Amino acid sequence: MALKKILHIIPTTDFGGITSMVVDIWTNTNKSMYHFDFLSFNKGQYHETLVQQGSKIFYETYITQQGPLAYMRKLYRILKQQQYDAVHDHTGYRAIFTLLAARLAGVQCRVLHSHTNVAEEWNNKIMLALLKRLSVYNATKLVACSQKAGEFCFSKRPFEVIANPIELQKVKCISFEERKKWREELGIKDDELVLGHIGRFVPVKNHSFLIELSVYLKQRGIPFQLFLIGDGPLEQEIHQLVQQKNVEDCVRFLGQRADILTLLQLFDKFLLPSHFEGFGIVLLEAQVCGTPAIVSSSLPREVDLHIGLVHYLDLHGEIDSWLQAIVTQNGQVDHQMIHDHIKMKGLDAQAIASKLCTLYI
């Protein structure tokens, strides 16, 4: 088979669920059969990784800034010059202008990939419905990371679910001594519970709930440290909320980190109170690291390995139920059993890469 060239449209080359997924898939793709290039709107930490793997990366300003026609003209020119066999857009219902440009450029395979089941920034339901319909109309294949994400973007149209993968080779289990050393370096006391959250500071991640939970834990005399990892537009607002609620001594901001899989192993509990998640790759990473997770009941169940590490709770229920789940002791974790479950469910990066590449045949 001749080498197939695919252009992936991703929001950013910085750390994040979509980018991590695409990087893991590209790492595990047969490069004698497929070549991936990327178009993105924000340069980030994964840029060099992708370049080292031989990819071209085209950066564009946001469509809202340059206008859809200017964006389409530039993309049309790129598609004609590079002669791509497929365009794979990971921006969901925002894909209309990408897919229309690809259609006009004669690209026969146009993949629309939904990674979310919510559109917080769109209050205009008519406009949102129109964007979805036009994006779907200009796609030739529909894919979603979960059943909910597909139903949200594609409504009743048939689609294929391809879960976000985990790169098992990236998970290096740390020893008890290493864990103790890390905790000492972070200033964690022996009697303190270590709670962690990983996610952008945006409304859907529900950081304000974590701060209210911190207040409750402190009032009940629970010794703990909550580590918030990530950045985003609401970070300063959450900083201010932490100060207002007087929990600066037990809430820590670590910013963007490249050592997520190590930090997850330091946590006694991982917290994910999101209002919505398309898939929740970080929850899969937590399970692979053997870290018990307490999460919102709104999360898709596809990410649960069903090995007893995920505890679902209602965001509208009693906050004390979160406290009880936090202080409950969990048993020992068999890491080999976790890896076996990942492979059994077909969630390892090699299996997902092979499945994804069948879209381009």
Rank of each mutant, 00 (worst) to 15 (best):
M1I: 12
M1K: 14
L7K: 01
H8N: 15
I10E: 00
T12L: 08
F15Y: 08
V22F: 00
V23L: 15
N30R: 12
K31D: 13
K31F: 14
Y34L: 09
Y34V: 00
N42C: 00
G44W: 04
T49F: 12
L50W: 01
G54S: 07
K56I: 02
Y59N: 07
Y59V: 10
Y62S: 02
T64A: 15
Q66Y: 02
P68Y: 10
L75Y: 03
Y76V: 06
R77T: 15
Q81H: 10
Q81E: 14
Q82G: 02
D85V: 09
D89L: 04
H90Q: 14
Y93T: 00
A95W: 05
I96K: 11
A102F: 05
R103K: 15
L104I: 14
Q108Y: 04
R110C: 06
L112W: 02
T116L: 13
M127K: 15
A129T: 13
K132S: 01
R133L: 10
L134R: 02
L134T: 04
V136N: 06
T140C: 09
K141L: 10
V143R: 07
F152N: 09
F152Y: 13
C153K: 04
F154H: 11
F154W: 01
K156E: 14
A163H: 08
N164S: 09
E167F: 08
V171A: 01
I174S: 02
I174W: 02
S175I: 12
R179G: 03
G187S: 12
I188T: 10
D191E: 15
L193Q: 05
V194K: 00
L195D: 06
I198V: 15
G199H: 01
V202H: 03
F209R: 11
L210W: 08
I211Q: 05
V215Y: 01
V215R: 05
K218W: 04
F224S: 05
F224C: 05
F227Q: 13
L228K: 03
I229V: 15
D231T: 11
E235Q: 15
E235N: 05
E237F: 07
H239P: 03
L241N: 07
K245G: 03
K245F: 10
K245N: 12
N246H: 11
D249K: 12
D249V: 04
G255C: 07
G255K: 04
Q256C: 10
D268P: 03
D268H: 11
F270H: 09
H275I: 12
F276C: 04
V288C: 05
L305N: 01
I307K: 03
Y312I: 09
L313D: 02
H316M: 14
D320G: 15
W322S: 00
Q324M: 14
I326E: 01
V327W: 12
Q329L: 14
N330A: 12
G331E: 06
D334A: 06
D334E: 11
Q336N: 14
D340L: 14
D340K: 14
M344E: 15
K345G: 04
A351H: 07
I352C: 00
A353G: 05
S354T: 00
K355R: 15
K355V: 06
L359V: 13
